[in-house]
Amino acid sequence: MTLFDHWHPVALSRELRRRRPLKVTLAGADVVLFRDGPRLGALDNTCPHRGFPLHRGRVDAGQLVCPYHGWRWATDGRGQAPGTPTARPCARAWEAVERHGLLWIRRAGSDMPFPFVDISGHGRVTTLRRRVQAPLEVVLDNFTEVEHTPPVHAFLGYPLERMAEVECATTITDDAVTVFNRGPQRRLPAPIRGVFQIPREADFVDAWTTRFSPVHTIYDQYFLVRGSDERRGPALRIAVFYTPVGPALTDLIVLAYASSARWRRPLLEAIRFPMTRLLVRIEVGRDARLLDAMEAPPVVLKGRALGRFDKALTASRRHIARIYRGEGEATGG
């Protein structure tokens, strides 16, 4: 098994148009995506004929046409050479699917499960992709601890002076790492509190589970009346996928949802949804800029001075090696 066996989101649906192919890169492998009606095609980007990059071609009648000699490729990889009608050339096809507003690929013939994101009954807030200059592991590290939230983030999270009060519980299972954080929400401007129905004295819960096929984290974020079990306002559910592009390049692919529904309070939600969207974009942008600024960060955790918020990091490294990269697997078994 290799990491290509997992279903990776590699682009947003809206990035792939009807007639123009799109090149994506998954862990160094260039793949061209194109549409045949509702069907999605994904082929190795190098034309099997003489190696022209297929993403420079065009889509005609659901087939990808190579600009060099005009050979045509169907979504399943079967080709036609107009000059030699009897030829049966074949391009290497990936399995591809469009779901949740994203385009996903995995190695053809793999039987890895598709990641389950329970968003039934949630309203979509936003879908975004942001490329960061850091290895997958380092990106995941940032997304699985809250200690960076006071200096890095603007809205969600805890005030620096009360960070010591924040509860942080890490649970590690065979295939997942779960973290539950709860603490006093930092001060927020009154209009934001109003729109999100957050009390002046609120606790903020940031809880998530990371799974590793592919590597992704699903967050539940919500507010409570300080020190009580009383929930206030809508909850956010955010799925973040970390798609490796190269050794030090990772795509963050974010699906953000809210537990509220637009039709229920159309006027309030007409303000709340765009505002949530903006908040999510700002906060993800801050993480991304921070990661870009890390400059060749060390991937190995051994020998670093780790704190109480970093327990998930070490566990995740083990899971990535075993579940995601298939290291230490018995060969031939």
Binding site: D118, S120, G121, H122, Y222, R231, S259, A261, R264
Partner: peptide, 10 residues
């Protein structure tokens, strides 16, 4: 139904 349960309860 409780406030925090989403539109389509699980």
């Amino acid at each position: 139904w409780p406030e925090q349960v989403p539109t389509y309860p699980a």
